[in-house]
Computed example of a mutant assay.
Amino acid sequence: MTTSEIALFVYDNLMKGEDQHEWLASARSLGEATTTPQYALVDLGTSGALVQGGFVAVTGELYALSPAALAALDVHRGHPILHRRTAIRLADGREAQAYLLSMEQAAGCRRVREGDWRKRRGAPGATRSRDNSPLVSWAKRRFDPSR
């Protein structure tokens, strides 16, 4: 990474193959990365949000961006009003910038338990659907005895 580039950890619709990846068109991929297990990943509907204070290691990708590209992305992500860009620690000891939401802002949002945006509800490649969880199955049987 050059001295003028900034490492950015992305974990949601900015990742490769997702609908807003074009925002990273000028960035250089540094590969996959995982955070230390002190975060939560929440589903905001069209995007996700990283929240400090959880117990999950979040999976994502690392990119090297120019300051100009990062400034444009800051505006797009609503930094510092909606998301706050700050330094985070990765599992391998490196540090990177990431967009975080405060715990208060994330209140009531569904958590992505696996810490992997691509494994959230109904996503392609999801290992487990919310509709097939033991609790949902029990509730459906309880309120619909014909099942």
Rank of each mutant, 00 (worst) to 15 (best):
R111N: 08
S129D: 15
H21G: 07
S47F: 12
D12H: 10
S137Y: 02
W117M: 09
D116F: 08
E5V: 02
R121I: 10
G53A: 05
Q38D: 14
H79C: 03
S137C: 10
L101R: 11
R84M: 10
G53W: 09
L65K: 00
R111W: 12
A139M: 13
A49C: 06
M103E: 15
R111C: 11
A91D: 09
A64N: 03
W117R: 01
T59L: 10
W117C: 10
D144I: 11
P134E: 13
R120C: 09
G115D: 11
G122D: 13
R118Y: 08
V112N: 08
S26M: 08
R28T: 13
L70T: 01
F143M: 08
T86F: 01
G122P: 04
T3E: 14
S4D: 14
H83K: 06
S102I: 06
K119V: 05
S47E: 12
S102Y: 04
L41F: 07
L70E: 04
K119G: 05
A57K: 02
A40F: 08
G54P: 02
I88F: 01
L70R: 02
R85Q: 08
G17M: 13
L62S: 03
A72I: 03
S4R: 12
R84C: 07
E5G: 03
Y63M: 04
H83G: 01
R120Q: 07
W117L: 10
R94E: 05
L24Y: 00
P37H: 09
W138G: 06
L73G: 05
W117Q: 10
T46Y: 09
R142S: 07
T36H: 01
R28Y: 04
Q20I: 04
L135D: 12
S146W: 08
E32I: 03
L135E: 15
S4H: 13
A123W: 12
A33F: 05
S137F: 05
L65S: 00
G45N: 09
D43Y: 11
A87I: 08
G122Y: 05
Y11P: 06
A69R: 07
S29V: 04
S29L: 05
R142V: 09
A64Y: 09
A96L: 00
P80R: 12
L41K: 06
S102E: 10
E114I: 10
A107C: 10
T59N: 08
V10I: 11
A57V: 02
N13Y: 04
S146C: 05
R147W: 13
T59S: 12
A7Y: 04
W138M: 11
L44W: 11
A106I: 09
T36Q: 08
D116W: 11
T34M: 08
